[in-house]
Simulated assay, not measured.
Amino acid sequence: MVKITLELIRKRSEHNEGEISTLEEIALHQENIDKIQLIDRHCRNLKILLLQNNLISKIENLNMLKRLEYLNLALNNIEIIENLEGLESLKKLDLTLNFIGNLQSVKSLRCNEHLEHLILMGNPCTDYEYYRQYVVATLPQLQEFDMQEIERSERIKALQIYSRAQDDVIESYWHYEKTRIAQRIRRNAEHETIETINQMLCRRFIYA
């Protein structure tokens, strides 16, 4: 795993002659980064931040990026949409291919008044029956969702069935979490079984 350091940021800011404080765009994709840090303290003029294809599991430490317009966190390990309230200028958010099952967490984006484009394709929540209707009704500022324009008629219909969509989203997430917990328990049991077998084999070789 790789940590975001000032050296890494400088390395990726060669187009800006290594000057960090005035950076407007930075690409830190495919770096095996597991935690977002330092960026909002040292790069407050950023308009574009590309963090796709890393190992990030939590959206954090971005609230001071008041000018950021485009954030790409596709292909990471994110499960919840959170901590984006401070991104006052955010227009586009890409969360393609993460592990977002809690679709209700999109409510946290209501305060991002300028958000026009949101991409959630490839997340577990896209399998929910009322997935699109729920997001369209929840975020009135969106103009495009999953690279498809939101028509006025679609928004009206989504609002009309919002209560039903919300119930479906809650129930679908409950089933999703139940399945994940069962899978986790099964994996842990398999791991423990393998460890036990390895230990028994080691003992046999030692005392043979």
Rank of each mutant, 00 (worst) to 15 (best):
V106Q: 11
V106H: 11
V106G: 06
V106A: 13
K107T: 13
S108Y: 01
S108L: 05
S108W: 01
S108Q: 04
L109Q: 02
L109A: 00
R110M: 08
C111H: 03
N112R: 03
N112E: 01
E113Y: 02
E113G: 09
E113N: 04
E113I: 03
H114D: 07
E116Q: 08
H117F: 07
H117K: 08
H117C: 02
H117W: 09
L118Q: 11
L118P: 06
L118T: 13
L118E: 10
L118I: 12
I119M: 07
I119D: 10
L120P: 00
L120T: 02
L120D: 00
M121C: 03
M121L: 14
M121P: 00
N123Q: 10
P124C: 13
P124E: 09
C125Q: 06
D127H: 13
D127F: 10
D127G: 04
Y128P: 11
E129H: 08
Y130I: 01
Y130C: 08
Y130S: 10
Y131Q: 06
Y131W: 05
Y131R: 04
R132Q: 12
Y134G: 08
V135Q: 00
V135N: 00
V135A: 00
V136T: 07
V136Y: 02
V136L: 03
T138V: 10
T138G: 12
L139T: 09
L139F: 07
P140I: 14
P140V: 15
Q141N: 15
L142V: 13
L142R: 10
Q143H: 12
Q143L: 14
E144Q: 15
E144N: 15
E144H: 10
F145W: 10
D146K: 05
D146A: 12
D146R: 09
M147I: 09
Q148R: 04
Q148L: 04
Q148I: 04
Q148E: 13
E151Q: 15
R152N: 13
R152P: 09
S153A: 05
S153G: 03
S153V: 05
E154H: 11
